[in-house]
């Protein structure tokens, strides 16, 4: 999984967000180390929607002709499954690396 996909899924797993909010949250939680640049952000949102991992949330309050600025996204069941699988994979990798590190010290 691409790292920025992971960050987007992580952010959406806490609730519905629009694009800018995702970018802000990723920057803050990474302490400024990761910036999702606009084309990367929206490109990834499109890709993830295409994969069916996230979906656009219809906003009842929004009139159809209103600005498209606030497109809200939410994570789908498939997305959550993919995210959990990736998290497990990463934590397995980390555990392996730590074990290797301990063995070297010993």
């Amino acid at each position: 999984m691409k790292p920025h996909w992971f960050h987007i899924l992580l952010s959406l797993s806490a609730g519905h967000r629009h694009g800018l909010a995702i970018a802000r949250e990723v920057r803050q939680s990474s302490e400024d180390r990761i910036t999702l640049w606009p084309a990367t952000l929206y490109g990834s949102l499109e890709d993830l929607t295409g994969l069916g991992w996230i979906e656009e949330i219809a906003d009842a309050k929004r009139r159809p002709d209103a600005s498209e600025r606030k497109r809200y996204y939410g994570i789908t069941r498939a997305g959550r499954a993919a995210f959990d699988a990736e998290t497990r994979r990463l934590s397995d990798l980390v555990r392996l690396a730590r074990q290797a590190g301990r063995r070297q010290q010993a």
């Binding site: 910036t35 640049w37 600005s67 497109r71």
Partner: peptide, 13 residues
Amino acid sequence: RHAAGMEDAFIDA
């Protein structure tokens, strides 16, 4: 689809 959102994200950065 996303011009406005992309502008917002850029201006934020």
